[in-house]
Amino acid sequence: MRILVVEDDAGIALGLRANLQQRGYAVDACGSLASAWTALCSEPFDLVLLDLGLADGDGGDLLLQIRRTRNSAGGPLPDPQTPVLIMTARDQVADRISGLNLGADDYLVKPFDLDELEARMRALLRRAAGRAHPRLMHGDLVIDPAAHTVLRAGQTVDLAPREFTLLLLLLESRGRVLSRQQLEARLYNWQDAVGSNAIEVHVHHLRRKLGESLIQTMRGVGYFIPRDECA
């Protein structure tokens, strides 16, 4: 999943990016409102982690700008439904109420535990995907995003981090074809060197581990998992 960290403390931003990348997320970081808005207009992000006290303004202004976005022929704009988790040192109840009223999906006070942060992230990502249950089930597959585990017919299947994320993306979009470009945008950050056949390689590995029929190819368009096998 693609995460944007908006944080002007370079140490915090680098630490968050490194930690979340170890947990299997593709993470980019911006240190200002201007660079964050440019990033959101350029790339699809599954979740924004937003600090409020930024050098060039208040993060709440960026949040309002995201929520007020409307489709326009004038150029690409961010998705107004993008989940936003505020992470800030402002710890007063009034601050939390204000942040949530601005349109934040969650509010976390610094300093925070990284395991709690990821748990809140998973909850927001699950809600955005329209899921209530923390696990995904498909045929004889059971996927647990919290534990990063996959069971097939009760047996554990070892997946590399990007294989796991790709499987999750396709399962959450069951019945809908995702292009190679769409998948690359959700799997890789700005610093990643992406091979021209990277997605094809990941799909090949998933088919070898989980069965050839799981992921279907629509030639010239992309990949999908059929909806009718959903448990």
Rank of each mutant, 00 (worst) to 15 (best):
L170F: 05
L136E: 03
M218C: 12
W37K: 01
L77G: 12
A29T: 07
A34G: 00
C230R: 14
E43R: 15
Y25H: 10
T88S: 02
L167V: 07
K110Q: 15
T38H: 11
L168E: 13
P226R: 10
Q22N: 15
Q155V: 14
R126W: 01
V48G: 04
V27H: 00
R186P: 01
S98M: 08
T156A: 15
G57S: 06
N19Y: 10
G175I: 06
A55W: 01
L210H: 10
H205M: 14
D79V: 05
N197K: 11
Q182E: 13
A29M: 03
V194T: 01
D192M: 13
A94K: 14
G11C: 05
A198W: 02
N101W: 10
T38K: 08
R135T: 12
G103W: 11
P78W: 01
G195T: 04
L16P: 06
D140H: 12
T165M: 14
G139H: 03
V48I: 13
L167R: 07
L16H: 05
S42Y: 07
V27R: 01
E212N: 12
L4N: 00
Y25D: 05
V48D: 03
V48M: 05
Q182K: 08
N197C: 06
D58I: 04
V150W: 02
D105W: 02
I12S: 04
V201L: 11
N19M: 11
T156E: 14
Y223W: 15
C30R: 00
E229K: 13
Q92V: 03
A29K: 00
A94N: 12
N101H: 12
R122T: 06
L108Y: 04
M87S: 13
V142Y: 04
M218R: 15
V109R: 05
L4Q: 03
R120M: 04
R96W: 05
R23D: 08
D56A: 04
G103M: 14
A129D: 01
F164D: 01
T69K: 09
W37N: 04
A146E: 10
L170V: 06
R176F: 07
M1E: 03
P78D: 03
P83R: 01
R2W: 06
D58C: 08
H202C: 09
D228K: 15
S179K: 02
V201C: 12
E184W: 02
I143M: 07
D91M: 02
L178D: 00
A94I: 12
D28L: 06
Y25W: 12
G15Y: 06
L178G: 02
L14V: 04
R152F: 08
D144N: 08
L33P: 07
L108V: 10
P83I: 03
P44F: 10
D91C: 05
R174G: 08
L77D: 07
R122P: 01
R208G: 09
N19V: 11
T149C: 07
